[in-house]
Computed example of a mutant assay.
Amino acid sequence: MGKLSAEAIVERALEIGDGEGLEAVTIRRLATDLGVTPMALYWHFKNKEQLLTGMADHLIAGFAVAPDDGRPWLDQLRELTQGLIRTLRRYPCAKTVLEQIDQTQVPSFLVVWDHTLGLARAAGFDVEESCLITKYILQSAIAIADAPVHLRTGRTPEQVKEVLRVKRLGLQSLPADRYPHLVEMAAPMVGDMDPALYDSFGMELILAGIEALARAKA
């Protein structure tokens, strides 16, 4: 094969992480899959920590933050959140990757983070409030993106369906007199709902709270 690139390494690492789980991503496994020696990978990533950072940077790099175009801050924040969710949704292992690295070391994440801080400041929040809002909304976007996909990691569609069926039956078998609402809503509780509703409602729930706080400060 031609000269091995860092991009080729992280793309294969993400494929393994999505299909088999992040624990399956090792330097030795990647070297075998890419047809090189482990030393060829160490040229780009000296350890797994650096590899994970590279994976995080790659999975977010596909998300282009729109420049401030004068629209209301809430519209821009909604667009940013929607775009980030769509980008992260492509990778079932995204949440696990982002949990295991120092996000301040990921250039593409810093771009998103900085832009979100600017939108919070434009909404009228002070420095500390802007930092908290940014952390909450980015972590919420990561969690929303992860929920419909995390069960797929390392499982076939049939296995996923069986896992959900068992979870649903477990809730439905609870004593209805003690847990009436869990029994009634067993299906949506385990994830059997319209994905579009899941995304939009979760995002609007967060944005509505931020908007209400901004109005109260005005």
Rank of each mutant, 00 (worst) to 15 (best):
L51M: 12
L52H: 08
T53Y: 05
G54L: 11
A56F: 08
A56Y: 03
A56E: 04
H58A: 13
H58V: 02
L59M: 15
I60M: 14
A61M: 10
A61I: 09
A61G: 08
G62E: 13
G62D: 10
G62F: 10
F63R: 02
A64S: 07
A64P: 00
V65K: 03
A66S: 13
A66L: 05
P67Q: 06
P67R: 10
P67T: 07
D68M: 03
G70Q: 11
G70A: 11
G70M: 10
R71K: 08
P72H: 13
P72F: 09
P72R: 10
W73L: 03
W73I: 04
L74A: 15
L74H: 14
Q76A: 12
E79G: 12
E79M: 10
E79N: 14
E79D: 15
E79F: 07
L80E: 06
L80T: 12
T81Q: 14
G83A: 11
L84S: 07
L84I: 12
I85F: 08
R86W: 08
R86T: 11
R86C: 06
T87F: 00
T87L: 05
T87A: 14
L88S: 08
R89P: 00
R89Q: 13
R89T: 14
R89D: 14
R89E: 12
R90P: 02
Y91H: 15
Y91C: 05
C93Q: 02
A94M: 06
T96D: 12
V97C: 05
V97F: 03
L98V: 10
L98R: 04
L98E: 02
Q100E: 15
Q100H: 14
I101Q: 07
D102G: 05
D102E: 09
D102W: 01
D102K: 05
D102P: 00
Q103G: 00
T104P: 00
Q105T: 08
V106H: 04
V106W: 02
P107M: 07
P107A: 09
S108G: 01
F109N: 04
F109Y: 14
L110M: 01
L110C: 03
L110K: 03
V111K: 10
V111I: 13
W113D: 14
W113H: 15
D114A: 15
D114Y: 14
T116K: 06
L117K: 12
G118S: 07
A120G: 00
A120Y: 00
R121C: 09
R121A: 12
A122Y: 02
A123C: 01
F125Q: 00
F125L: 11
F125I: 09
D126R: 07
D126K: 07
V127K: 13
E128G: 05
E128Q: 12
E129Q: 14
E129K: 11
C131D: 15
L132H: 12
I133H: 00
I133M: 04
I133E: 00
I133A: 08
I133R: 01
K135N: 09
Y136M: 14
I137H: 01
Q139V: 06
Q139P: 00
Q139N: 09
Q139H: 04
S140V: 13
S140Y: 11
S140D: 14
